[in-house]
């Protein structure tokens, strides 16, 4: 019950982050939103493991925390090398 409730609440947070990712306006807003989405998904996966009673699948959450971080660094790095000037807005 408690885990299910937390799962739903985290899903709401993920949804809100997605809205920001869709809306932008600048590419940095999107990165911020995707990053936030990623960390909340990590937490969601952790809680969800407890909700279904199989918390031994935390490896996936760990992998995703890693991937999410490297992903954000990669986007920043490549946005940097493409847009040398301008506000980065799309």
């Amino acid at each position: 019950m408690m885990f299910g409730f937390s799962c739903l609440a985290l899903l709401v947070v993920m949804g809100v982050a997605l809205v920001r990712a869709f809306a932008g306006p600048s590419v940095y807003d999107r990165i911020l939103a995707v990053n936030m989405f990623g960390t909340k998904t990590v937490l969601f996966l952790a809680v969800f493991g407890f909700f279904t009673g199989r918390p031994d699948f935390l490896d996936i959450a760990l992998v995703y925390a890693l991937i999410n971080f490297i992903g954000v660094i990669a986007v920043l790095r490549f946005v940097e090398s493409v847009t040398h000037t301008g506000t980065g807005a799309d």
């Binding site: 609440a9 985290l10 709401v12 947070v13 809100v16 982050a17 809205v19 920001r20 911020l32 939103a33 936030m36 909340k40 937490l43």
Partner: peptide, 9 residues
């Protein structure tokens, strides 16, 4: 978490 989400919006 929800507070932060509201903030980003």
């Amino acid at each position: 978490g929800i507070t932060g989400a509201i903030g980003t919006i």
